[in-house]
Design a binder for these strands. Structure first.
Length: 679
RNA sequence: GGCGGGGUAGCUCAGGUGGUUAGAGCGACGGAUUCAUAACCCGUAGGUCACGAGUUCAACUCUCGUCCCCGCUACCA
């Protein structure tokens, strides 16, 4: 295996439009922090990078909603995020942000170099433009009727009602979110990264060269590469972001996906500036190992797009591994910022003061390394009470209490060196396993091996029964407790990787200084070394504590239901003449069949009395053909024809929608004539 | 529909290139113990390894098909 002189570790830049939640932690920051702490303990040279991603459309929208500037938004969340990371003890060397001048410079320079070397292509396209606001509209800034579910306030990129992803061109009756005007189409010019040109190289680099990547990561990359890559726009029309450093490009900024990963480099420069050190060797030297910690939603950016950017630029190293995790669910439901279905880090730290390590432990033990996982408060409580407190905390406590009881809190002489050898051998073995697991990004497994050391300690004490031996053979008890203390000291050393706050407390109790990994598996405390008073490492988490958290979540659920049950606002009035233009007819469904190779489409034959029409409708998720055949429905008959998946569809069928988005037939109650007007 | 990932004890997960009684932690149950945060320690029970075929002397592990969950993607007038 290649020898690396230094490590460049990046963590996905959290988007600064909301705080950090447990999903972020379990997927990215805690595993990265464990990895980095491990590397440092091994004496390796590490640069650990984090920062806020502060550009992009959602932030500008949030700012508009609150009538403040985008900078105000990112200042607020960057502050919350940065502080909560510090409080949890994520050991970033630098936590930077993309609104800093140094980032704008870095991203501009990156773009300029690609541009000057003809690595980008320019293309024109038609985009919606707001003539009042005099600017092009991002998809997010266009609202209109969702063509799928009819929701009137769908965004240009996604309908929040039915969850379908859209393009602004799909929207019916598009409106500018800025002025409410009807936007016009206007030509605009943008720069693209021709990803297709990197396809061959990427295949070789990943498919051939990185078979060791996690299966979920490797498979996802293969899927993308097999589907074929297309040029991707690097710039867009927006006024919030890194300005495109070219003449005549007012109102254009770098697309956020392009500037965000460059943020890793900017953060490194930021760090170098603050510390007076050099950043370039971490990014441009072949003996540096670049690793991106991310969630699975980011795989394509870090495995396909960013490497292509780096390759195009030419002077940077490429990621050596991208250990992406899957997602963490919460009490059975997907974590959602907008639905407030989350455990927010800054709130957790307030609700559970001093329990940073409990969260670290639970999220590591239950990390979604190979598949999506579920966080429950019940599990949180069980892990704390049955594992941290009962096994780890309890072993430390019984060792300390016994030592104070029998030997005035001083490390007794080791009268049983042979037993110590056996113990240290076992710990040494576990150390190796921990190392091996961490090197392979298997943090759950590593943590389990770590806990085995505490188990080993409990077992030793129980078997040796020093409290029974003491009256007859105090000399033997000296050896037993010395051994138990050496185990405790080893726990103190190793816990720095997983549970830094606990390590601090433990070392204070043991009155020991800093140690590195080379001490692990050795006898650490010397004879007569004075110990401090024991303190409880892990308090029990009571039923009422978790009860409160569950109630908090239930309240979120109620709030969501309440808002979901609210009625859509009325549309603006229309003239009767406009309404009369719509030709609604009664139709009878004669035939219905699912359109092959689609998820939603149903092909219908509808009898309008005077003719039988083919209509394609996106309702396979709600009806089976049998439920539709023979039913009378209301048809919009004068919409014109449209080609859908190669079928000519002539008309549209109306449905009623329930609060949960399900569709119901709209049908005449009494026997109605096919082809009759609905008016 | 296509592609990728996953479906193993109540829960969370291990199970290189197929090979004797499928493992661990937690939970449950029983025992032992009292130094300790009623904790620790020992033991027991729990699995048709999603389902159905096939290849093989032998499949959780390979092949094919089906179902379910997650993600990406096409489609919704």
């Amino acid at each position: 295996m290649k020898e690396y002189k230094r490590y460049t570790i990046t963590t996905a830049l959290p988007y600064a439009n909301g705080p950090i939640h447990i999903g972020h932690l379990a997927g990215v920051y805690i595993p990265a922090d464990i990895y980095v702490r491990y590397l440092r303990k091994m004496g390796r040279d590490v640069l650990f990078i984090g920062g806020s991603d502060e550009h992009g459309v959602p932030i500008t929208i949030k700012a508009r909603q609150q009538n403040i500037s985008p900078q105000d938004i990112v200042d607020k969340y960057h502050g919350i995020i940065k502080k909560s990371f510090e409080d949890l003890g994520i050991s970033f060397d630098v936590y930077s942000r993309t609104s800093l001048p140094i980032h704008h410079e870095t991203a501009s320079a990156f773009f300029t170099k690609l541009h000057n070397e003809d690595k980008l292509t320019q293309m024109e396209s038609e985009q919606y433009y707001d003539e009042d606001a005099k600017q092009f509209l991002a998809d997010r800034y266009i609202t209109g009727t969702c063509p799928h579910c009819g929701y009137e306030k769908a965004y240009g990129d996604q309908c929040e009602k039915c969850g379908t992803s859209l393009s602004a061109n799909d929207l019916i009756e598009p409106r500018s979110a800025l002025s409410g005007n009807i936007p016009v189409k206007k030509a605009t010019s943008h720069w693209f990264l021709p990803l297709d040109q990197y396809e061959t190289w990427l295949k070789e680099w990943i498919i051939e060269g990185h078979k060791e990547w996690k299966t979920n990561v490797y498979g996802q990359c293969k899927s993308w590469l097999d589907q074929g890559l297309h040029p991707r726009a690097v710039t867009r029309d927006l006024d919030w972001g890194v300005n495109v450093p070219l003449p005549d490009s007012d109102g254009k900024v770098l697309y956020v996906w392009f500037d965000a990963p460059i943020g890793y480099i900017s953060a490194s420069r930021d760090w170098a500036q603050q510390t007076g050190k050099s950043w370039e060797e971490y990014w441009k030297s072949d003996d540096s190992r670049l690793i991106h910690f991310i969630g699975k939603d980011n795989i394509v950016f870090h495995c396909i797009i960013f490497p292509s950017m780096l390759k195009a630029e030419g002077s940077y190293i490429l990621p050596e591994n991208v250990p992406a995790n899957e997602f963490l669910n919460l009490e059975g439901d997907k974590i959602s910022t907008s639905r407030n279905w989350a455990v927010w880090l800054h709130e957790y730290l307030e609700d559970f003061p001093g329990k940073q390590d409990v969260l670290r432990y639970v999220l590591t033990a239950n990390a979604p390394e190979t598949k999506d996982n579920d966080f429950t408060w019940k599990d949180f409580q069980a892990r704390n009470n049955n594992e941290l407190a009962a096994i780890f905390g309890n072993f430390v406590n019984r060792t300390m209490v016994l030592t104070h009881k029998y030997f005035e809190g001083k490390v007794p002489v080791n009268t049983l060196p042979a037993e110590l050898d056996d113990i240290l051998k076992e710990i040494g073995l576990l150390n190796e396993k921990i190392s091996h697991s961490i090197e392979h990004f298997r943090f759950r497994e590593a943590l389990a091996f770590f806990m085995d050391i505490a188990r080993l300690g409990n077992k030793y004490l129980t078997e040796k029964e020093p409290w029974k031996v003491f009256p007859n053979d105090p000399e033997a008890v000296k050896g037993i407790l010395n051994n138990a203390l050496q185990i405790t000291a080893n726990l103190a050393v190793l816990s720095e990787i997983f549970l830094p706050e606990t390590a601090r407390k433990l070392k204070a109790m043991l009155n020991m200084g800093n140690t590195d990994w080379s001490n692990a598996g050795k006898s650490i405390l010397v004879e007569n070394h004075p110990l401090n008073q024991p303190q409880i490492l892990f308090e029990k988490v009571e039923d009422t504590d978790v009860q409160k958290q569950v109630e908090k979540l239930e309240q979120s659920k109620k709030d969501n239901l309440a808002s979901a049950a609210s009625f859509e606002p009325l549309k603006p009035d229309v003239a009767f003449d406009d309404f009369a233009k719509v030709d609604l007819r009664v139709g009878k469904i004669l035939e219905a069949e699912k359109v092959a190779k689609t998820k939603k489409l149903m092909k219908l034959s509808v009898d309008l009395g005077f003719e039988v029409r083919t209509i394609v409708s996106g309702v396979s998720e709600y009806f089976t053909p049998e439920q539709l055949i023979g039913k009378k429905v209301v048809v919009v008959a004068n919409l014109g024809k449209r080609d859908i998946k190669g079928i000519e569809s002539n008309g549209m069928i109306l449905y009623a929608e329930n609060a949960d988005g399900t569709l119901l037939l709209v049908s005449p109650v009494d026997e109605a004539m096919s082809g009759g007007l609905v008016k």
